[in-house]
Design a binder for these strands. Sequence first.
DNA 1: CTTGTTGAGATTGGATGCAATTGCGGGTAT
DNA 2: ATACCCGCAATTGCATCCAATCTCAACAAG
Lengths: 231, 231
Amino acid sequence: MTAAFVPAPATRDGNASSRVAEGIRDGIVRGTYPPGARLRQEEIAERFGASRVPVREALKLLEAEGLVTLVPNAGAWVSRLTLAECEEVYQARERLEPLLMRYSMPSLTPRDLIELAELAQQMTETDDVAEFLRLDRAFHMLSYSGADTLVLSDLVTRLWNTTQPYRRAYTLMIDDHSQRIVHDEHHLLVTALREGDLESAERTVENHIRRTRRLLAAHPEIFTDATTSHR
Amino acid sequence: MTAAFVPAPATRDGNASSRVAEGIRDGIVRGTYPPGARLRQEEIAERFGASRVPVREALKLLEAEGLVTLVPNAGAWVSRLTLAECEEVYQARERLEPLLMRYSMPSLTPRDLIELAELAQQMTETDDVAEFLRLDRAFHMLSYSGADTLVLSDLVTRLWNTTQPYRRAYTLMIDDHSQRIVHDEHHLLVTALREGDLESAERTVENHIRRTRRLLAAHPEIFTDATTSHR
DNA sequence: CTTGTTGAGATTGGATGCAATTGCGGGTAT
DNA sequence: ATACCCGCAATTGCATCCAATCTCAACAAG
């Protein structure tokens, strides 16, 4: 028979619950759902063309990922981190990401290195915050793409996800000087990878994360939310 | 009014889904549900006196915790780790637990230290594997109990949970020599904590985990399962 | 003006029932 | 004997429905 004539409602792959979870996760990471935002089951169900049952399963999943805070009989909110919690995540990342880099580096191809350099370059050329964040994430994820790990890459991705809203808030207010340092660090990382200097790559990653952590700590106002006080 | 006359079915606190999740998690950690075991929704629902809906939510939660592997339209199994994945978890622990120790140590009370020494002593006196594992877990968790962290302690607990079945399998086959080393390491840790030597405490923890990782790697037969081939 | 109370509406939690998919066993052809 | 195919039982996925609980705004008291 010829190709399918099915309209393909654009939302037809995978389970409803996984689809919903992915959608909400995406919304949180992209900033559509900011920290503290209430997530109403019915609203989400309608948004994804499903009933409330798969939505609740998705919320449970995201709760375990740390992206959503569930209060029994009350509701679900996008998780909000305190500065202290955010620093915990960053400190965990400082220790885990160099390890992941160790797994990844040996398997990075010359093609990957070229692409990394391109991403780093593109980051210097954009003014759009969303684009900046997208490129930054793509850059680092690509630098870890050589790692043939399941647990570790998953873990790191999750830590990235939970802190993404604060990276966004922070990115909105950094000055040219700080931005320059970010670019320098990325360039240093690419260089270390190119030279096959694992030690240097690991330390560059660690420093990159540490510096961001300290900058976040210097801007506690990011965490004292202006709107509601939900957690 | 006087105390409630409700029969209290012993399963009456919290949501059904949380209760079920806790129950299954407990079963996996205690070894009741071994890796690879099939988890049938209806069976679990009956076991916990609930319907299948909260069971499914619990399974989703546990999937995100890494304890359960969900295959769409097929079923749920207790997660089975390969040796490589287990080593990933242990390497992550090697980096995260010293950090957690750093948070915890300053807040440990003299009472905690006494209890730690007691737990370490009790471990040398038991022959029962389940008891040994229980004490080991209690020992380490107590050593981290000073940490006023949410993210980090949660993370570490989860990593412990996912590898618990393999610790059990491994404990079943260690000789007196290896067991002696475990006790020595615990004693060293208590000493370091007592002396307030953070550096030493961190390194002892790291070494303790690293040694276990290497011993697990020396017994790959633990991971090649004899029964089914489900993952 | 602030704080506590109360009741209706909104929202979540869970059970049941049905459709969809999978896995498995017997049968058949090679 | 082996590989393949088909059909039924078992199991999962999901929508709907009802009960339980919370939210919130209006109101009253201090």
